[in-house]
C-alpha cells in the first residue's frame, strides 16, 4: 500500500512540476486587398497547401494545410487579434520566459533558436460575409530555407 501511495505521489509531483515549452496562441486577421494585382490567397503545389499573403506590398506569409472552422461572426469577440508588431513583442517575451526550460531541454547544447512556428500556434481569421468568419490554423512561411541575396546589376 505504501508503495502505491509513493508511486502516486511521485506521479502527481512529476506532472505538477514538469515544464513544457508551450506555444502562444495568436490570431491574425486576414483581409483581401481588392487593389492588389498579385494573388493573396492561392493553392501552392510545392507546399501542398493554401498560401495567405497578409499584405499586398509587404511580408507576412502563411500556409494553411489542415481543416478550418466556419463560425458565426459573433465569435469574433472571443479572439484577440494581434498585429505583426505585437507578435514581435510576444516573441521576445516568450524567449525570455522559456530560457530556463529550453536550457533544461537542450542541456549542454543549449539553445537552438525557435522560430515563429515553434513559438506560436497561429490562426488566421477571415471574415467571409456579414454573418460568418473562418478560422484557419496556419504556419508561418519562409522560415525553412536559406535565401541568397545579391544586389542585381543596373542595366
Amino acid at each position: 500500500m505504501r508503495h502505491i501511495v509513493t508511486s502516486f505521489l511521485l506521479c502527481v509531483c512529476s506532472i505538477a512540476f514538469s515544464q513544457k515549452i508551450e506555444p502562444i496562441t495568436i490570431y491574425i486577421e486576414f483581409k483581401l486587398d481588392k487593389k492588389c494585382p498579385g494573388d493573396q490567397k492561392f493553392y501552392y503545389d510545392r507546399e501542398e497547401g493554401t498560401v495567405f499573403n497578409l499584405y499586398c506590398d509587404k511580408g507576412g506569409s502563411f500556409l494553411w494545410k489542415s481543416k478550418s472552422d466556419t463560425l458565426s461572426i459573433s465569435c469574433l469577440q472571443n479572439y484577440k487579434v494581434s498585429s505583426l508588431e505585437e507578435i514581435e513583442v510576444l516573441e521576445k517575451q516568450w524567449r525570455k520566459k522559456n530560457r530556463k526550460i529550453l536550457k533544461k531541454k537542450f542541456g549542454e547544447y543549449c539553445c537552438p533558436p525557435y522560430d515563429k512556428n515553434g513559438i506560436f500556434q497561429t490562426f488566421l481569421i477571415e471574415i467571409i460575409n456579414h454573418d460568418q468568419l473562418v478560422l484557419y490554423p496556419v504556419e508561418w512561411r519562409g522560415l525553412n530555407g536559406i535565401y541568397e541575396y545579391e544586389e542585381p546589376p543596373k542595366r
Binding site: Y44, V51, G59, G60, N144, G145, E148
Partner: peptide
C-alpha cells in the same frame, strides 16, 4: 517567386531544409 516567396522577394534562390 514574388507571391510564392513573399517574405524573400529580394533573393535570387532558396535551398529548403529536407521535407
Amino acid at each position: 517567386y514574388a507571391i510564392n516567396q513573399k517574405d524573400h522577394i529580394l533573393s535570387q534562390a532558396v535551398t529548403l531544409i529536407p521535407a
